[in-house]
Design a binder for these strands. Sequence first.
DNA 1: TTCAAAAGTTGAGTTGTTGCACTTATTGAG
DNA 2: CTCAATAAGTGCAACAACTCAACTTTTGAA
Lengths: 200, 200
Amino acid sequence: MTETDSGRPPMGRRERKKAATRRAIADAALRLFLERGYDDVGIREIADAADVSTTTLFKHFPVKEALVFDEEADHEAELLAAVRERPAGQSVPAALRDHALRSRTAGADGDEGFAAYLELVNSTPALRDYAQNMWLRHTAALARVIAEESGLPEGDPACTALAHFALEAPRAARGHADTREALVRAFDLLERGWNALASG
Amino acid sequence: MTETDSGRPPMGRRERKKAATRRAIADAALRLFLERGYDDVGIREIADAADVSTTTLFKHFPVKEALVFDEEADHEAELLAAVRERPAGQSVPAALRDHALRSRTAGADGDEGFAAYLELVNSTPALRDYAQNMWLRHTAALARVIAEESGLPEGDPACTALAHFALEAPRAARGHADTREALVRAFDLLERGWNALASG
DNA sequence: TTCAAAAGTTGAGTTGTTGCACTTATTGAG
DNA sequence: CTCAATAAGTGCAACAACTCAACTTTTGAA
């Protein structure tokens, strides 16, 4: 069982143990959540299962919701890369659309347990909201990349607007029978607006 | 001191007393919040100030944040009217933009204390989020009106998208030096996209 | 070896929110 | 008018998510 040694600077015993506790907590939490539902599992219970105190738990995760998004670091990098390294000739909104579709489509042939994970998140309001807010935290970074890619001045409100709307699009699509199509239509609106903005 | 008798069906003693307690609670809460800040006032304190029990308080307001948005009923009606009764020749997104600008501009010459109220809401994250979620609850209704006005089939995802984005626009504009201009630019994106969608 | 910082523990407290059992007031029907 | 149903309100205890302060145990390095 060789641990996560993907951390480039080789980490000492200290950090390794810390990471281990963190994972123990997150794993216990996710297992319990999947078994019995997010709202029916208390913090104390998770702490017990991971054999730590509740205070320790909160030193690793600021709030209960964060337990579910442990391995969430650097979706931002992927997001920015999706725009920067988009296929030649593709528009920025189209790249964002494809990225959204890719991120949101994890059911088809992929991981077995990952589907259950998505189901957990999407069916728990507290988690949905938390996840959405996490995405919105990338607005500024995304806006900056959009500005670069389109030659607009950094800080141009149009870039922020596009970034924000793109990150909100999945939420706007929710509730429609065909989520994918709804997403595509939403991005259609953005794409056409963006093109008109550039040419106008 | 003739109370709020604007309720069309004349209300009996019961409902009048209920409304009175409700107002007593909301008033006490707002006063305390303005004096010392939202986070530094506890529920128990508010209940004491209004001379009711915390149980009673929660029978009138489901959560703490709701105390601040007491008189919030029927911003929805105004919103829908702004679209339905827009000046001839004006586009739907433009009507939404104007409505957003109108709602958001309450500082100029208007109420004295109302500025403080806005400051309270905008400077408290919990309240900002709550308010935003309140707006988003009108998405479905707004989408329906947009569909009617534009002849698209009810439930068309493009309508939901426009509705959602329009309601998110103020949030996208926040953080920019010139909020008004940022708002206008965001709606510009939507308007052009919407037009292209119609003509394409 | 020595020592300071980091990780973890314990235990008690605060805060929003709910449940339960109970009292009082209003009302509508007979 | 009477009376039972209903709704408002009370008091209190409890819970769950978090926080705080004081203290012990590693662990990395000087």
